[in-house]
Design a protein around this nucleic acid. Structure first.
Lengths: 115, 115
DNA sequence: TGACCTCTGTTCATCCATTGAACGCATAGA
DNA sequence: TCTATGCGTTCAATGGATGAACAGAGGTCA
């Protein structure tokens, strides 16, 4: 997972659920706690996320990770880049699959609606 | 790139062009010389590739990397696994793209023929 | 109150795959 | 023969990811 994609995913999750802990983020994203911590600190450093004190009965020293206005803008920009790249990856995957099917002599399935 | 995929790609290239050098393989696959060497030696060790002496005017100490019968079988098996996984990846990518389009409020394009 | 427990963010030594410069060697050409 | 070139091979160095361990804050209960 690219650093840019990680930042996007973290922003995405924190916007929807600001009371997530770094351990929860790590488990959800399938990466280590250390890497999440590094990413979150970078987002705070850049002013995209603000860590507010947060106290309730379940969490002991947890923060609320609230997205700043700049954070929302950044998240939207990252989302669009992410989407465009995924579309491109999917197109590239199609070509790779077709090439492999040709090599293997498989009948290529009719996939319509692709450019 | 996974080790398994790398082995497949190396077998694929060597079957089509057995006089490729390890440096050519590295450049084509976008990885380092050291990693290619490690992979090729593993393929030789497992009996999937045999390195025959090869002498011509352009290459000084190059080998001919010929696929053995077992190598051909292995390559076919890897190809099928590779194809199936790529198809699955492409399907997963579609779901991810659709989810992102929904978040972004984009009109989802009509892609037919997918299950 | 105070001792203890729990859960958090934070740190950093460790690991491991990857890299590519450097080497030895074999051949071609002068 | 001697030199240059290009090959496979090696391995010290790099860099990112990991997760155990730590310190701190708040809850709990006698």
């Amino acid at each position: 997972m690219r650093p840019e994609d990680l930042r996007f995913q973290v922003l995405r999750h924190l916007e929807q659920k600001p009371d997530m802990t770094q351990r929860e983020l790590a488990a959800t994203l399938g990466i280590s706690l250390g890497r999440v911590n590094y990413c979150v600190q970078a987002l705070i450093e850049r002013g995209f996320v603000k860590a507010a004190n947060f106290r309730n009965s379940r969490n002991k020293r947890a923060y609320l990770y609230k997205l700043t206005p700049n954070g929302l803008t950044e998240k939207a920009a990252l989302a669009l880049r992410f989407l465009r790249r995924k579309e491109q990856e999917r197109q590239a995957l199609l070509q790779e699959i077709e090439a492999l099917r040709a090599e293997l002599g498989e009948a290529s399935s009719h996939e319509q609606g692709e450019q």
